[in-house]
Design a protein around this nucleic acid. Sequence first.
DNA 1: CAAAGTGTTTCATTATATGAAACGGCGTTT
DNA 2: AAACGCCGTTTCATATAATGAAACACTTTG
Lengths: 250, 250
Amino acid sequence: METTSKNLNQSIIKAFTLLDAFTTEKKEWGVRELATKSGYNKSTTYRLLSTLVSLQVVQQNENEKYSLGSKLFELGNRVSLYQSLINATKIPIRDIAIHIQETVLFGVLKNNQVFYINKAESLQGLKISTSVGSYQPINATAIGKVLLAFSSHEKQQNTLKMMSFNSYTRKSITKKNEFITELEKTKNQGYALDLEEFELGLICVAIPIFNKNNKLIGSISASGPSSRFELKNVSNYISILKNGAQKINL
Amino acid sequence: METTSKNLNQSIIKAFTLLDAFTTEKKEWGVRELATKSGYNKSTTYRLLSTLVSLQVVQQNENEKYSLGSKLFELGNRVSLYQSLINATKIPIRDIAIHIQETVLFGVLKNNQVFYINKAESLQGLKISTSVGSYQPINATAIGKVLLAFSSHEKQQNTLKMMSFNSYTRKSITKKNEFITELEKTKNQGYALDLEEFELGLICVAIPIFNKNNKLIGSISASGPSSRFELKNVSNYISILKNGAQKINL
DNA sequence: CAAAGTGTTTCATTATATGAAACGGCGTTT
DNA sequence: AAACGCCGTTTCATATAATGAAACACTTTG
């Protein structure tokens, strides 16, 4: 049997299908519940879970439900590409968060979406639900606009073809040509804004991050509630973001 | 075929055996190299890697070598048990690190070892190589001594039976009865010291962390070079650690 | 140019995985 | 107290997938 022009191991695919069911919204599953969700037989699901438990990839709680285990935490902390990005951004975005008094995020383009790599919060800042290791759309986020605007022409064309243009609020940009205009504006002004486009009440401003070779490595943003994140302060926030960005060395 | 009195899925076991080979010391492997390391046939290894690549669990680099991929980073950030511990300890240990000007670590007991969950560094502090998601021995670390000293009697007896007593430096405690004496001392004084027992030149001091129900949830330590971490300052460091610990709410 | 190493593919053979049926336990309902 | 409904778990005959030796094409090294 062939998948993507070569045989792939079905058991491993099944195992990761099960692991994907564990999210920040639903952290634990029973055997039959997970079998229903995944479409696998409950005996198969039970055996796959037992194997994952024996490897500490999954753990069984006292209520007999299953949740993700320590081995994933261990392996997740060994993904060297992202660990080096986290190490490089950790202190700069912490300092920006303290200075600006809002949540700061660092993200990259992956799977035609924004992939969040690091996050720094401020005690006074609004609790942003975005979590590290999660994805958000390009068309409705400041980081997404920046990452696409500052990508190579080829990368931009490919992504524009593949990405989604869904509506998250009434302010989301859902037409491709309007989004292209927004990308040109972003490129010209050197930053992007998300004016309640992804989530009502939330405003974000983002700038690109380059390495020594002037290659785009990601984007950082500051996010806050529209009631506090006055547009008149945008240029001030941008200065703080840029100052912080200079301390990211890669 | 039975393993631990039940059948487990061999393919999943093989996949995670391969994933375990990717460490902070060796981040990428070729197919045949990994086959030799794991003991699996190179065709089998190739097919397992291909499956893992298609799931983004592993990625193939431009030099054709393989390394861990984004899916593990994603899943690793969804292990809710540790994410909640990280969220609770993040700001307190950051503040301790700034105040004490050394590296601060948070760890728990797992697999009869210390398992590191969080880490905060100081610009001036010595770069400690210990990484989040890694293990270190109980007998030769301050955090290990604290975690065992403040565990229940049953947990302590079980762990003493199962743990190792290896030597890391000439100062390591390698005799069980000497270690038990050290645990009693730790319990009495409310903190533990690692005086170059795990790594020459490195001194650590650790205290226990309890939740609202007075249940032990982990331990935090401050680590620094023996040239700067003078013993006369220990009581001062302990005060700072304890003040910081009070801000950890669980 | 030959040798040595790599990643990748094929297919006959072997081994493993599967899932229906059943079990025991627990909480709820009658 | 008994029946019911749901859970996690186990068994074993059957079906399916995984395996690995051999070979290929490519790149690097001597």
